[in-house]
């Protein structure tokens, strides 16, 4: 599949943003100063909004994007839009209420938290629902998206937060306990992907043409000598050659570096703000990971073009 920059930005940054919002909503202790609360909320909300805005660059008609809120009964993309807006509106109210009123905000906070996690899940389901792309069509896809959203969001919130320990456990250690399993799920995802090929689903040139009863099927000539929308969007081949190296880079930058930084913060009892470096590293690693998520995925339409 074509790894469009807009969609990579969308999934990575909105995942981190909604992960952070879920944690703040669930009551992660922020610094007491109202400005600190506002800035932290704006960082989390800003990431989520930036991701959603990036996703509209992918559209042929962004001015009609509002129409995407209508089909939540059948479409994961529509659900994602509805849930994202609900989570962001709720988070805005939550932030305003805690800044300017004495009202109890725990209830709305938990609701915001649930909506944020549901948003990340829906984002993943846009891809996981597609039977045409066997790499994506797995429960491990939403598991990885949720794991990455929570881990990257936690690094951000913990860096901005007020505490060095939660329930007696160093937040740096908690960060490690989120980053490592998230990447473990991703490694399981990669292992599954190795065998989740089109051929393993009996999607072959033979079944695609129905001519397998006669014999072995091979494309002799494409319909047109030039490219077309389908070949550019779904018969994308660039970069698979370096996939192995890029996986190593993603793990090194996105998993090992944040884990190392968190370990140093825990060991040397540094200020939690140093976890921000871990957040930046993890985001960089996730951009590589997400590029591979698209670039390595094969679509069944390639059977008619390869």
């Amino acid at each position: 599949m074509h790894p469009a920059v807009s969609v990579i930005l969308f999934t990575v940054t909105s995942g981190a943003g909604f992960g952070a919002i879920a944690l703040i909503g669930a009551g992660y202790p922020l610094r007491d100063h109202p400005l600190a609360v506002l800035l932290t909320a704006m960082a989390a909300g800003g990431l989520a909004v930036a991701g959603l805005v990036a996703s509209t660059f992918h559209l042929g008609h962004p001015e009609r994007a509002w129409r995407a809120f209508s089909q939540w009964r059948s479409s994961w993309l529509s659900r994602e839009g509805v849930l994202a807006v609900a989570a962001l509106v709720g988070f805005g109210l939550h932030t305003l209420a805690r800044l300017f009123t004495d009202w109890p905000v725990a209830g709305i906070g938990w609701a915001v938290s649930a909506l944020s996690l549901a948003t990340i899940f829906s984002t993943a389901m846009i891809y996981a629902q597609l039977r045409t792309v066997p790499h994506w069509h797995s429960a491990l896809t939403p598991a990885a998206y949720l794991g990455f959203g929570l881990a990257s969001g936690f690094l951000l919130v913990a860096a901005a937060g007020n505490v060095s320990a939660l329930g007696g456990v160093s937040v740096a250690l908690i960060a490690m306990a989120l980053v490592v399993p998230a990447w473990a799920v991703k490694i399981a995802w990669w292992q599954r992907a190795a065998s989740a090929t089109l051929a393993a689903r009996d999607m072959t040139a033979e079944s695609a043409t129905g001519l397998g009863a006669i014999g072995r099927v091979r494309l002799l000539e494409r319909p047109h000598s030039g490219a077309n929308y389908l070949t550019r969007e779904m018969v994308h081949r660039i970069g698979r050659k370096h996939a192995g190296k890029l996986r190593v880079a993603a793990i090194a930058i996105g998993a090992m570096l944040p884990t190392l930084i968190a370990a140093l913060v825990a060991w040397l009892q540094l200020e939690t703000v140093f976890l921000l470096a871990g957040f930046v590293a993890m985001m960089a690693g996730l951009f590589v990971e997400r590029w591979l998520f698209f670039a390595e995925a094969s679509h069944s339409v390639s059977l008619y073009y390869d």
Binding site: L59, G60, H61, R67, E233, S300, Y304
Partner: peptide, 26 residues
């Protein structure tokens, strides 16, 4: 007139039956 040109339907189609028009963007 309702199509936002997101391309998800083309991804969902196993057969490559849908193509985004490069000018009309639908």
């Amino acid at each position: 007139d309702r199509c936002i040109g997101c391309g998800l339907c083309a991804w969902a189609c196993p057969y490559g039956a849908r193509e985004m028009d490069p000018v009309a963007r639908v």
